[in-house]
Amino acid sequence: MKHLQLLAEVTKNVEVGPGIFCLTFTSRELAREARPGQFIMLKVSSAPMIDPVLRRPFSIHKVEGDQVSILFKVVGRGTEILAGENHEVDLLGPLGNGYTIPAKGYLALVGGGLGIAPLLFLAQYCIKLRKDERTLILLGARTAAELAPIKDFRKLGFPIELATDDGSAGHHGFVTHLMTDNMEGADWTVVTCGPQPMMRGVAEQSAANGWECQVSLESVMACGIGACLGCAVRAKNNDSYLHVCRDGPVFNAEEVIL
């Protein structure tokens, strides 16, 4: 697969929830090349080297025709700039390895918080790849407002269960409780993305049931292309490190220490 470096025209930047933005740009090449779970490195400042210096990694949230979207929450200087007015984005991608999607069998997409971002693209893919197979979507957040992006999930027609920490939408509690209620007694493939403690819970529950679990990790990284070695995660089997950008961001939960 060819990695691209390109400038893409921004077509939309919508605040979909409190401080949560969905930024959409045009790139036919990226739309064609990208696979669910892969990410892009975005330069947030427009001039070549103006502060902040580093690119930021974002997973691909949505692909419709030649329109590619990312979903992000304003948490610092970089995302603040991205939330403002941008005419074009400078990006590298698609980077990393995406999810391995089984064509048959039960598949559960378990997302938490902003971790729902790559799962929409994955669900879009499932429509094409496994339309008649059982695909279940379980999404959790702290509060209902953070679940605003779910209307895109609903359009796809897969069964969706929600959980919120404060009970403002769906089940009052963790998304892992939804797994117990909706998945027991069958052979599932689980893919998950969200806060580390949540993914740890999902991975443990999957392991206890003998389900295969793929986790999508986040890390600080300087380059995104395997050069800086900054995005290290500890490997489970030996005393070494794997790298989120090159070996991930999607790992089998058995490979890494969460």
Binding site: D51, P52, V53, L54, S219, V220, M221, A222, C228, L229, G230, C231, A232, V233, R234, D239, S240, Y241
Partner: peptide, 20 residues
């Protein structure tokens, strides 16, 4: 060599710190 435990990089004003 396996390198240092994470986090290994952090952005700073007009630069970055690394401890790979």
């Amino acid at each position: 060599r396996p390198g240092n435990p994470p986090p290994r990089v952090v952005e700073t004003s007009c630069g970055m710190l690394n401890a790979i």
